[in-house]
Nucleic acid binder design. Structure first.
Length: 742
DNA sequence: AAAAAAG
């Protein structure tokens, strides 16, 4: 593993010392003069449990209001074992902060991290200390959260209980009033003391989105942040100390661990989805045209009547790029059904074909080739060898390759090379507009992609920046103002910045949609279309996904011209290194069985259908003494980032997640994936299971279903073309124990 | 159901 990817290495390039520089980190090595870390004592614990105010030795009074309902489960994330010392880290809550935001902090400026940033932004720290602070603060959930909860507890909380009928979880629904739920909302304290409801009205009306509590978490809130109290100390006590991460002298610290998240090469698990299909597909010659770009209008309708754009001759490319029409009998289906769409006919590249081929042979420049080698990609993988030439040739490309099969480099490396050719770093003007855009469905994936692309871009003097929500936009905006070449992000924030006039995509000549089929799902398609329409007319479009199918037809039709379609031969489920098991269980036994399954050494990723259940299950496992945490949209971004990092780093062995983690997320060595709730779509099954069995390693996927779901599961597996064994299981069965023992 | 915007 390259150093850059190895968390063990710090910015300085050497193995990191035992202690953490992060105040509040459990392993923090306080420097001389640093404020002593507070500790919880029994009295405080009792106070907290009783809901009484804490003593004066508390870090800050503000703290308290932040974690009210914390009650007995303080920061479950910070205490690996539910054993006895939970409180011990609590005190460090304050100091803990930096760490929580650190991640997101760094994330915003990955691209700037190691550049001379300091030089051009002296003003940042000195001139407007206060100005940017705000945004900094907003990162920190804890502080602002207070006021929040109160307003919207209703909205999301309710679902909590309602989601899980007491019936199945007697023990849960009732004994835990939504008030204690906060455990994961720990960031949003408050209760009752939010007099300022006055602003609420407008708040609600403006944004009907009552269901978005998650992003609210990061929002600073409104005047009621008394918690500011701790802020000062933050700045004054160790102004420079914690800044490090921010400063270039420490960029690497977080980077490494990041990189390790998704090497994106090396671990390509050979597998392709459904090999043979119908090949008769209509050609796309007569698709409607690309819309003219006008002002930004989100209300713009996706399929409005647009003038047809001139079609390109079908013969202008060497590759076939047809889509296919309907696939056999399943031509008609109701929306919402899990259907197998026709696959795209693709040029299949085999591993044998790329033997002896180098990145240089494919057309990449020296610097990029060298950087790829540094990243661990010495020679191209099939999907890379297949798509790189076409991307460099300026063609639109559709690529199907399992995530982790080198897909990111397959589009990232040639994209960088392309930008370089077009005028490149040479005539870089200060406020240049971005020329490439990479869209991902989740923030974590956007982060991961940037971790791979950024070093490649930097090797030739290009800059990248992430544009995604859940974190203050200040740094993203200032990065844009300084000028970046490549934007990697999620739809919401990108649209937001466009609307604010802070992001101009008019010079974007290359656009990539990762997990393209997913980006075409209901809810994503329209934003994606609006964004694509903002990019430069005639710009190149690259669509990638492990399950690329006709679902992307609408996008292809509007935005791509005679695309080359590529896939890797021989990547089917049969050749997979994953062992698929289905346990048919009694619903009431579910948690007991999960508890037994995770009682093992390796890393386990558990998928749940809802955020509430993910949270509940994580708590439950923790209470049972398992090091577990969760990842879902109800967590603020800082915590999402941190929790994922906890699995990556091994601080926890179990991560319970919603489908936010189903696609693209790479964590080394996950050898067991448990689907606590069976997926409804075969594609979801494929993506979830794809979190394991990577890099040719073996992995196991266990899906728990009640017996009445057996038939449905059978059908789903058939669509996924997966062979799985069904076993009736009860807690304690050897079938369960054996799985855990593997 | 989940995800994706909010100085």
């Amino acid at each position: 593993m390259p150093k850059n990817f190895d968390p063990k290495y710090s910015a300085k390039g050497g193995p990191s010392k035992g202690g953490s520089k992060s105040p509040g980190h459990r392993g923090h090595n306080a420097a001389e003069g640093a404020p002593k870390k507070a500790r919880w004592n029994a009295g405080e614990r009792a106070d907290r449990a009783a809901g009484r105010p804490a003593g004066n030795d508390r870090p800050s009074s503000g703290q308290r209001s932040e974690r009210p309902a914390y009650g007995d489960r303080p920061n479950r994330n910070d205490r690996p074992s539910s054993g006895g010392a939970p409180r011990t880290d609590r005190p460090s809550y304050n100091s803990d902060r930096p760490r929580a935001d650190r991640p997101s902090y760094g994330n915003d400026r990955p691209s700037y991290g190691d550049r001379a940033p300091r030089t051009d932004r002296p003003s940042y720290n000195s001139d407007r200390p206060r100005t940017d602070r705000p945004s900094y603060n907003s990162d920190r959930p804890r502080t602002d959260r207070p006021s929040y909860n109160s307003d919207r507890p209703r909205t999301d909380r309710p679902s909590y209980n309602s989601d899980r009928p007491r019936t199945d979880r007697p023990s849960y629904g009732n004994d835990r009033p939504r008030t204690d739920r906060p455990s994961y909302n720990s960031d949003r304290p408050s209760y009752g003391d939010r007099a300022p409801r006055t602003d609420r009205p407008s708040y609600n009306s403006d944004r009907p989105r009552t269901d978005r509590p998650s992003y609210n978490n990061d929002r600073p809130s409104y005047g009621d942040r008394a918690p500011r109290t701790d802020r000062p100390s933050y700045n004054s006590d160790r102004p420079r100390t914690d800044r490090p991460a921010y400063n270039s002298d420490r960029p690497r610290t977080d980077r490494p661990s990041y990189n390790s998240d998704r090497p994106s090469y090396g671990d390509r698990a050979p597998r392709t989805e459904r090999p043979a299909y119908n090949n008769d597909r209509p050609s796309y010659g007569d698709r409607p045209a690309r819309p003219e770009r006008g002002g930004y209008d989100r209300s713009e309708r996706a399929n409005s009547d647009r003038p047809a754009r001139p079609t390109r001759s079908a013969s202008d490319g060497g590759h076939s790029s047809n889509f296919y029409p309907d696939r056999d009998t399943k031509a008609h289906f109701a929306a919402g059904d899990d259907v197998v769409l026709e696959r795209l006919e693709a040029i299949a590249t085999t591993a044998a074909e790329v033997v002896g081929v180098s990145f240089g042979d494919l057309g990449l420049g020296e610097n990029i080739v060298r950087e790829l080698a540094t990243l661990g990609a010495a020679t191209p993988f099939p999907i890379q060898a297949a798509t790189i030439p076409d991307v460099l040739a300026g063609r639109d490309v559709l690529g199907r390759g399992k995530t982790g099969s080198g897909k990111t480099i397959a589009f990232g490396a040639p994209l960088v090379e392309k930008l370089l050719e077009n005028n490149g770093a040479k005539d870089r003007k200060m406020a240049r507009k971005p020329r490439a855009l990479i869209l991902a469905p989740t923030r974590e994936l956007a982060l991961q992609i940037d971790r791979t692309i950024q070093p490649i871009a930097r090797s030739v003097g290009l800059f990248t920046t992430q544009i995604y929500g859940g974190v203050p936009q200040y740094r993203q905006v200032s990065a844009l103002q300084r000028g970046v070449d490549i934007i990697i992000g999620t739809a919401g924030r990108i649209e937001d910045l466009i609307e604010q006039g802070r992001l101009d995509l008019s010079e974007v000549v290359v656009t990539v949609l990762d997990e393209a089929d997913y980006m075409c799902d209901l809810g994503f398609l329209e934003p994606v279309q609006r964004i694509l329409r903002q990019t430069k007319k005639g710009g190149q479009k690259l669509l990638f996904s492990a399950t690329l199918d006709k679902g992307v037809a609408s996008l292809v039709k509007e935005f791509l011209i005679n695309p080359a379609v590529h896939e890797v031969a021989g990547e089917d489920q049969a050749s997979s290194t994953i062992d698929h098991r289905v346990l048919v269980i009694e619903h009431r036994d579910k948690s007991a069985i999960i508890g037994q399954l995770v009682d093992r050494q390796g890393k386990t990723l558990i998928f749940s259908r809802t955020r509430a259940y993910a949270e509940q299950l994580a708590e439950q496992l923790e209470d049972a003494g398992v090091k577990a945490t969760s990842l879902h949209g109800d967590l603020n971004q800082a915590r999402r980032t941190r929790n994922l990092q906890m699995l990556t780093s091994g601080r926890v062995n179990v991560l319970v997640a919603t489908d936010v983690a189903a696609r693209g997320i790479h964590v080394d060595d996950i050898d067991l994936v448990i689907q606590a709730d069976a997926p409804d779509e075969y594609k979801t099954y494929l993506h979830r299971s794809g979190r394991t069995g990577r890099a040719g390693k073996s992995g196991t996927v266990v899906t728990l279903i009640p017996k009445q779901r057996r038939r449905r599961m059978d059908d789903l597996l058939e669509r996924a073309e997966i062979e799985a064994s069904f076993t009736n299981a009860a807690p304690g069965d050897t079938s369960v124990r054996d799985l855990a023992g593997m």
